[in-house]
Design a protein around this nucleic acid. Structure first.
Lengths: 147, 147
DNA sequence: CGACATGGTCAAGCAGCTTGACTATATGGC
DNA sequence: GCCATATAGTCAAGCTGCTTGACCATGTCG
């Protein structure tokens, strides 16, 4: 593979990621929620059982302060709430509210809608293969900003 | 495809894009250049024959002022220079210097190196197919930030 | 030639992140 | 039981990269 091909792959990857992110965000907004794309990663971490600010920060790859600000915002807008941590009086458990869950479902619907357009172009098997291959080359650990 | 699958695809795409971007940037830095990931898109537009600030802004999807700041920086660091535009006295043509070209080549090498690791996992044909499919679903036009 | 469009810059402001300092609680050695 | 140290979280200040708004110089077209 030529060097310039590799750069083109990077560009295509970023373009696809940006496009999909934009579409998901638009879809979420059109369903009556306001959300910044970065929230998706926060919600994904909060979804199962909640998380502390520090855990969230590690997951997002930012400082505790930045994570705390993000939590401030989603709490202020009613998507999550801070509760006392059951086992550690220093910590506070951030959990999604019902509205937060609704927003998460909206994001899933929007994502499915966006991916459906890809399915129309590539076919379902190809899209599934795409997802599987991406998963193999970039395990989904802590988030690193795309640039 | 289930809704949650679609979100997982988006996450995998962003993770892969972020990972690749990070690796390319690291590779460029280790070759003795300092570059911010966003520069890649600027350099790509400047590479053939130069571009005006306005063209660059449109390509990057930001304001003229932001593009101008970016140009200030890469000029200050010796990667490009502003020349009078041959056909329009209002405009100034931003062109890469020899150092700019060297940095571009370093980015291509770094990208090739990063993609090579993927090739080891997926095989060359798969990676090529990945690039081709990504190209089909997200034509590489103006850049939209990933989030 | 004059009216408007376009390329570019200057200035101010804002959002999201950082580092640094601090308080409150937890943990482990003695 | 107590103290030293580590950890969860917040407050405050600052930086960077973007934005909007205003402006000048040049081009284009009636």
């Amino acid at each position: 593979m030529q060097n310039s091909e590799a750069l083109a792959l990077a560009a295509a990857l970023l373009a696809a990621a940006g496009d999909l992110t934009q579409r998901i965000n638009d879809g979420v907004v059109s369903r009556g929620f306001e959300a910044r794309p970065a929230w998706g990663f926060a919600f994904a971490r909060l979804a199962p059982d909640g998380a502390t600010v520090t855990e969230l920060a590690a997951h997002l790859g930012v400082t505790k302060q930045a994570a705390s600000q993000l939590v401030d915002e989603i709490v202020r807008k009613g998507y999550a709430e801070r509760r006392p941590h059951p086992a550690d009086a220093r910590a506070r458990l951030v959990v999604l509210t019902e509205r937060g869950w609704a927003c998460t479902r909206a994001a899933e619907e929007a994502a499915a809608e966006a991916v459906r357009e890809w399915t129309d172009v590539l076919g379902e098997g190809e899209v599934r293969a795409l997802r599987e291959r991406l998963g193999r080359i970039a395990p989904y650990g802590p988030i690193r900003p795309a640039w």
